[in-house]
Amino acid sequence: MTKFRIWWAVLITGLFVSCDNGKPKLDNPSRGTIVIAADESFKPLVTQLTSAYSGIYPDAHFKIVYRPEKEAINLMLQDSARVAFTTRTLTKGEQAVLDKSKIVGSATKLATDGVALIINRTNTDSLITMSELKNIFSGKIKNWSQLPGGSQSNPITLVFDNNNSSNLEFVLNTFGITDVNNLRIFTTKSNREVIDFVRDNPSALGFIGVNWISDGDEPLTGELSKDLRVMGVSPKDNPTGRADYFQPFQEDLGMQRYPLRRPVYALSREAHPGLAGGLVNYVIRDAGSLIIYKLGLWPSVPYNREVNLRK
């Protein structure tokens, strides 16, 4: 009898395996493992969103790969990642890669982010206009003393996290700059290294994703912000006062006053109702927007709060 039961169990197991054709089960919104690619400037955002989701669904696992934006998108296109967190949607050429594989794909705007301009605490020139920034990137302004109110005479060193980062690409596209060979640009390996470099170099002007320093409840934010200033940026050529300058924090991002704001997208190649869709829905339809608020960014879909008033 015991041998019969063992034989029967083996037979049933074989039937289930044959029915599945040996293929692994697809992930679903609450279970599975997927790879996410993201530009390193979004690391605090991606880390908190995925950690919160895994806290709700312990069987949901995310392998996060941080790469410059173009590389992150390519990983998604090559099916080496299910989702890419980016500042833009796909180009026609990139979409053609998905079309060739008959994958529709999706692009969901999650939030509004900003590129923060940071300077050393000893540099008291904390206000700049968009036209002055353009002149810096076009090579017309090379020295801090050329800026109104410049407090030092050193050359301006522009500091970015990577040669192909979304921060650099965004700024160059904003000002229509195609040649950087004559600019004093220094690149590190991460947004955190940009912060460290600016802290140690009074003549540096750093560019980072604002979510690295905008979470007031995170101890790391206080640590990273130490001995730094965040510059106020004015869209006006001739601002008349401090009120014409804006910083890349929540209200000025949401009210679209900060000129170096940018969207955050989740680009997905998912072809079934899976874990990627579950994460994106959590961000735009559930409490994920509260995490975006906490990080100091502006969510695309505000979290709805119901308040019952009683007499």
Rank of each mutant, 00 (worst) to 15 (best):
I6C: 01
G14Y: 06
S18H: 10
N28F: 14
P29Q: 13
V35E: 10
V35P: 01
A37D: 03
P44C: 11
L45E: 04
L45R: 05
L49H: 03
L49Y: 05
A52M: 05
P68M: 10
K70L: 09
K70S: 13
D79E: 14
T86C: 08
T86M: 08
K92W: 13
E94R: 15
K100G: 04
S101V: 04
G114F: 01
I118S: 02
I119R: 14
T124D: 13
T129L: 02
M130W: 05
E132R: 08
L133G: 00
K134R: 14
F137P: 02
K142Q: 07
L147I: 09
G149Q: 11
G150V: 10
V159W: 04
N167A: 04
I177M: 02
I177T: 06
L183K: 11
R184S: 06
I185E: 10
F186W: 14
T187G: 07
I195L: 11
L205Q: 05
D215N: 15
D217I: 09
P219W: 09
P219L: 10
T221C: 09
S225P: 00
K226T: 10
R229V: 11
V230F: 00
N238A: 08
G241I: 07
Y245R: 00
Q247H: 09
Q247C: 03
Q247G: 08
E251I: 07
L253I: 05
R257G: 10
V264K: 03
Y265C: 07
H272T: 15
P273S: 14
G274D: 00
D286E: 13
A287K: 15
A287M: 12
L297N: 05
V301P: 00
V307A: 12
